[in-house]
Design a binder for these strands. Structure first.
Lengths: 329, 329
DNA sequence: TTGTACGCGTTATCAT
DNA sequence: ATGATAACGCGTACAA
């Protein structure tokens, strides 16, 4: 049987109330008794039971992180940002991989609720109405990262502007036939928005759109590889390819290498995200840097504010991105 | 105020005991009443309070994962394996990034204890005696992954054999001057063991050891890059370099590229781990595949067995590795 | 098969 | 400044 507050109280010759007081150094307790109780706690190696405490105080200092898959790039860095500031505010994080499966999401929402999590951070670009419904019915606050849904608090970058800037940059480099490997069509943030920026840049430059230059992927390497093969084997191939994710850009680089195209002379490749590998591979990758760590940190900070019932001036936080020029263009 | 079991009981016209029974479908409850109670639960949208439950049943269905840094390669995949089987057994995981800092480790150990975690999975190659002490004093079970400490249960691969095999492979390829970028000197698993395998292979082939061909790094890209520069700029440079991690191998590839060496003709490079990028970069990387997902899954499975007090036949699980030949050699 | 009542380990209110 | 005690929401003997 593990030690309880009562055992400490008896050994110290005080009441449990007093022990509780020194534990939370609340109220006023005479310095003498404080010392005495502290000594006994040390000596016995007593550790308070946070579960019992939570039952009483109605918070658990625990939040849930819902992401598609921790083993996919982009997320670990964000999660690290979340955990670091969670840590500063004495929160723990429980990790939930949803694989974007509806049942898993709902199941986790249930479990997190039942375990009385104080809040939830949800990440992944696609939010269905049904899921949003569940969020609304939740009694615990939710913060979105790189997602958007009506009035829910969120932190992200301006995806349209970022992709627009990247395509403009490619145009300035002299490219006229610019292909794009886009994200998913039902993904407002990383899918639709980035295509929008691409279209906008071409229009502004007076370059006609060509349907055959736009293919869709799912952000993963394989889809980039396949999309790259498709774009590069057609007659009159593009001289530059812009990808909605770095992983897909790596796929394009591999495809180009197999086709004996050298970069950036034969082909320019640009990505999106700036995952850590972007600067490590050869050729290193020109890309849009999303402040991943910061997105996590800011998202968690926002959540703590909500949990503390502080007034938040803006519930949609737009972070800065940056175009990073490297060897691939 | 949120719903309690009592509210359900009143609405259903039964006692709280009965409601509790249908919730845990324990004991025997008449099908009629079962249905009735279930209906009320549904209708009211009642969700049990897992905290109160935990206080009573003395388990939380939550385990802690302690790793150095989720944003460093290798870990996300392992964590995914852990989470998947944790999920199967209805456990949740709380993620703890320790940065290998002693105070953070101890702090997390405390918090996990106070929050009554059912178990802990600890990952990171270096375990000090002091930390092991804390483990021993812990009342909750610990499983190690890719670590080793006396009798603590663990899952890992045979690092000596794996590195030995890789170096032998390089020798068979005709290399005589083989450099190595090793891990840390105080790291028994990924540091010392892999050097041991390297030495062994050289000795077995009758190749004399040369001190200048062995440099130490810390598994990260930068240390690989610097080590690579060092090895490749010395007179009579090695024709092959074996790295104790893929990240360091990527560093070597970058260094070699900058020195205008082409792979594998001028230089062969081999890594260790088989992180997902290993097959995506150019040249793709020859490496030792550690079954990362499986290591996590098996580790968690081991923990559930311990938690269920099942008898475990072996507390040290050695998993299979594989040498994967790719373009870099 | 169902209900009553106690206990899980805390915190917080109200006295003293 | 300190102590007694009632919650917190649930599971489970023990009774019925």
């Amino acid at each position: 049987m593990t030690l309880k507050i009562k055992d400490v109280a008896e050994h110290a010759g005080v009441s449990v109330a007093t022990v509780s007081r020194v534990l939370n150094n609340s109220d006023s307790v005479k310095p003498d008794t404080f010392q005495k109780v502290m000594a006994v706690i040390e000596e016995m190696g007593y550790k308070p039971n946070a579960i019992a405490r939570s039952l009483k105080v109605k918070n658990t200092k625990t939040i849930g992180i819902m992401i598609p898959d921790i083993s996919s790039h982009f997320y670990p860095e964000v999660v690290r940002g979340i955990e670091d500031v969670a840590n500063m505010y004495e929160y723990n994080v429980v990790l939930c991989n949803t694989d974007l499966k509806r049942e898993k999401e709902l199941k986790y929402l249930d479990v997190l609720t039942e375990k009385q999590s104080d809040g939830i951070i949800y990440m992944s670009n696609i939010i269905t109405d049904q899921l949003a419904d569940s969020f609304q019915n939740l009694k615990i606050p939710v913060v979105l990262i790189s997602s958007e849904y009506e009035e829910l608090p969120t932190v992200l970058i301006d995806n349209v502007a970022a992709s627009n800037e990247m395509v403009k940059y490619l145009i300035q480099k002299g490219h006229k036939r610019i292909g794009m490997i886009a994200g998913q069509r039902n993904d407002y943030i990383a899918g639709i928005s980035r295509v929008k920026g691409y279209y906008k840049a071409l229009e502004e430059a007076g370059i006609p759109l060509e349907e055959s230059l736009l293919v869709y992927g799912n952000y993963r390497f394989k889809s980039g590889y396949e999309g790259g093969k498709k774009l590069l084997t057609q007659e009159n191939r593009p001289t530059a390819i812009f990808c909605a994710s770095d992983e897909m850009a790596l796929g394009v680089i591999r495809a180009a290498t197999e086709l004996k195209l050298s970069m950036p002379t034969d082909l320019a490749v640009a990505g999106f995200d700036n995952i850590d590998m972007a600067e490590k591979i050869c050729p290193s990758l020109t890309t849009i840097a999303q402040p991943m760590y910061e997105m996590g940190a800011v998202g968690m900070r926002l959540l703590t504010k909500i949990l503390n019932k502080e007034t938040i001036q803006q519930s949609k936080v737009i972070l800065n991105y940056a175009l990073i020029e490297r060897e691939s263009t």
